[in-house]
């Protein structure tokens, strides 16, 4: 019999897996109180680094062709498929669910990537328009990525929540800084390992683990963040975060646990261009 090699759960920033600059970690346990892991406890400086990484990655990710982004999202699904067992085991440990339930969640998470992969080169067709203005002008509206989106993922189904948060944001061409569930962070980090090996450019997704109350206020107030998905934040905390997000008028949304094109559009911005029609 040989001893298991256990994984060190680290942060995911700018394509690398650093420990927190603070050197801190915290302990998570299952329902029965058994030790699971010591994930990194990110600090606000880690958050700052993550936002900067996202900001730096944005222009090339946004200008990648939608077809290319779609392929990368599909690649994530492919890589996740190969890691199914690990995801299932982590979900079972963190959420105390049956292997069948855990398998279903992993299935749904992978399917979610596939579904949004297909949206990347269609969303603008659905949401854009040409507008028949009263004059000799060609006028059209396109949906463009917003920039950097902060995500506090819904944690009931911890893997699915993370994917439901990330996939639409990436499909739109945005970069993400995601704060994983404090109690159930492992799927997010394992997903990060998939992202790191699936052609997602460094910095496009950044994932932090740690204490929600310590991190989310900085996410909400950070002036480089353009949008916030607060699906994983309860009502009272959300109000406070919404207030500080007003400083740079972030686009703030919360979603039910369903996939929809609206989730993509929530973090897109409509741009309308006019040009004369003449000879």
């Amino acid at each position: 019999m040989s001893l298991d090699i256990k994984k060190t759960y680290k942060l995911f920033i700018a394509g690398a897996f650093p420990r927190s600059e603070s050197g801190r970690s915290y302990e998570i346990r299952d329902k029965k109180g058994n030790f699971i892991a010591n994930p990194a406890q990110a600090s606000r400086k880690d958050l700052r680094d993550a936002v900067l990484a996202a900001k730096n990655a944005h222009s090339s990710w946004a200008s990648a062709t939608a077809y290319n982004r779609g392929q990368i999202l599909y690649r994530i699904a492919e890589i996740m498929e190969g890691r199914s067992e690990q995801f299932v085991a982590e979900i079972m440990a963190m959420e105390s669910v049956s292997s069948k339930q855990a398998q279903l969640q992993v299935r749904q998470a992978i399917d979610t990537w596939v579904w949004y992969a297909g949206w990347s080169d269609k969303i603008s067709t659905i949401a854009g328009s040409t507008n028949p203005v009263a004059g000799s002008f060609f006028n059209f509206t396109v949906a463009e990525p917003l920039g950097v989106v902060g995500i506090v993922a819904e944690e009931k189904s911890s893997l699915l929540g993370v994917v439901l948060g990330l996939a639409p944001v990436l499909a739109a061409g945005n970069c993400a800084v995601l704060i994983a569930s404090q109690k159930r962070p492992l799927s997010a980090i394992t997903l990060a390992e998939c992202l790191a090996t699936s052609d997602v450019p460094a910095g496009v997704v950044n994932i932090l683990t740690g204490l929600s109350d310590e991190l989310t206020p900085h996410l909400a107030s950070h002036m480089e963040i353009d949008g916030l998905d607060l699906s994983g934040v309860d009502g009272k905390s959300a109000a406070a975060l919404r207030i500080s997000s007003v400083d740079n008028l972030k686009r703030v949304h919360s979603f039910s646990a369903e996939k929809s094109p609206e989730r993509i559009l929530s973090f897109m911005e409509y741009k309308t261009l006019w040009h004369p029609i003449g000879v």
Partner: peptide, 24 residues
């Protein structure tokens, strides 16, 4: 980074044309 871009024209408005801003 702007919600309305006028190319070779400016300050045109129409009910059929969406209007609104990015950022602040």
């Amino acid at each position: 980074k702007a919600g309305v871009i006028w190319a070779n024209t400016f300050n045109k408005f129409d009910p059929a044309s969406p209007f609104g801003g990015y950022k602040e």
